[in-house]
Write a protein that binds this DNA or RNA. Structure first.
Lengths: 130, 130
DNA sequence: TTTCGATATGCGCAACTAAACATATCGGTG
DNA sequence: CACCGATATGTTTAGTTGCGCATATCGAAA
């Protein structure tokens, strides 16, 4: 889930995480959920996406359900029944959200890169220079 | 511990968290620990800092201990005994670390501010404009 | 109208985390 | 040299979260 820690000269690593939440406080949308959304695009079903992500269907379904509750709108067009059991696809709103989130994450990654470099320099400096 | 979520027009909030870790993976240094460090400067003892932070001495001590283990150097000059039982103060290295961390956090705050504004604009846009 | 595989959901148990409790040690100071 | 209050640490209990087992539902196609 979390980003792999960034190595520093002092054996200290910086970790960070971003996620979305609703106003009630319970429930959250984290990277794992967006990962699922991407896999649903590829595979066409929530089940296949869950398998691909190495998580149980129960868990994947819960994450999507929770996210939809927070957002107040559907992320998936879900279809049950039929020869192949059913399928799911992203709603247009889900597509937009996914894109926006990935862009947000990218900006975050970039700024972290810079901030962490500064941080490493700071703790490297001797104490007598300020 | 975590930052209070940032409100968005769509009732979705952005949350984020940063923390430090060592190379073994077990143990971490989070905002709470830096908060303790600041209170130790104010109060002069770990106990008073723990009380101020509303946590047990046991917990506070554990956090400091863990942080020192990760970093490989002492955060506190600890003194036992004496009339008033003892006291603790930050080491110079701890001061530097604390300052660097707070600066890092500030940079995060700023970049998140900007990134989240962009995010909100993105999910507001209609789907037919790209 | 039976079948099949994906969606849908309740619920109990396990794993982990966090808090609470208990207890020992230290050493200036009166 | 006894006292006091903070540092130091193991043990134990409590609480939370999540995982996955079990089971039901759906509907196009054969």
């Amino acid at each position: 889930m979390d980003k792999p820690p960034r190595p520093s000269k002092t054996n200290v690593f910086l970790n960070y995480k971003i996620w979305l939440s609703g106003l009630t406080g319970n429930g959250l949308i984290e990277d794992e959920t967006f990962g699922l959304m991407e896999k649903i695009v590829e595979k066409g079903t929530l089940k296949a996406a869950a398998d691909e992500a190495g998580m149980s269907y129960r868990k994947a379904w819960g994450k999507i359900r929770s996210a939809e509750e927070i957002l107040g709108y559907a992320l998936l067009d879900k279809h049950r029944g039929g020869k192949d059991g059913g399928n799911s696809s992203l709603t247009p709103a889900a597509f937009k959200l996914l894109e926006a989130y990935r862009a947000l994450q990218q900006q975050f990654d970039d700024s972290v890169e810079h901030a962490f470099n500064t941080f490493k320099e700071s703790i490297k400096k001797s104490t007598d220079d300020k």
